[in-house]
Amino acid sequence: MKLGYYPGCTLKTKAKNLEDSALASLEVLGIEATELERWNCCGAVYSLADDDLIHIVAPVRDLIRAQQQGYDTVITLCSMCYNTLARANELMKNDEEKRNTLNDFMDEEPDYFGDVKVVHFLNFLEDEVGWDKVKEAVKVPLNGLKVAPYYGCTLLRPKEVGIDHPDNPVMFHKFLNALGAEAVDFDSATECCSAYQSLAHPDIALKVSYDILQDATNKGADALALACPLCDYNLGRKQGKMLEMFESANEVPIYYFTHLMAVAFGVPIDRNHFELNRESSVELLKLKNLLSEVPA
């Protein structure tokens, strides 16, 4: 397998902490994933209209790039990129008519038939690495850390591209258990954080996200782990605003799932870029004695 890595725009700026902690963890596992040399924004959301193919051009172009550079598999970290790329790939594989239209439109690119495999990092860990090997690589077991695994929408739905069962997923749980953490079940694990509504309806987004955090802490979670930079924005970065708006709001430490892996693997702390998180993320790890040093 020749593994290419598609980062997505936000992982190069505000979610650098997702990218770097993931790449550091891959190094520990001895896995080489090379970033595509040339790529564009995938469009973040998949087009949901039968007559709207122009919004599928962006993800398909990325898959063409992957193929041109000789990768048979593309690994993604951002849930939204994963969803968009995987669905575009399914379309190119299965819908001959739309495939022809898209290939004709992109007359400056080679034709594409959906041959590149799109996998999410968690899928890759389960299918290609295996939880046992993840467990073996753990140097600092996350004992005593109760984490609510937040899947959100785009990792699970629709079923054709979901990494696990849409209503009763367990993959994130297995991941946390392999790192020695306790996975805390909560009803909102597969609910939407309101995604891009933070742009159009920030007040609604704040309330919906607040409810998710309340649910997690009510079930006894110390923290919440997630996989998507937009979830991180709504559930994490907006917590200051939540504390202002809702009387019973409490600070909930938020991690990218890759943060927890990097910490458990004993990766140097600066690779986690905790400066992009709220302070509570580092504070909790210190409190649980999971960090030997303070971030650079």
């Binding site: 564009n40 924004c41 469009g43 122009i54 919004h55 051009v57 962006a58 172009r61 400056e108």
Partner: peptide, 11 residues
């Protein structure tokens, strides 16, 4: 952020 990567600009 409204770019759809249609590539008409480069062409």
């Amino acid at each position: 952020f409204r770019c759809v990567a249609c590539n008409a600009c480069s062409k």
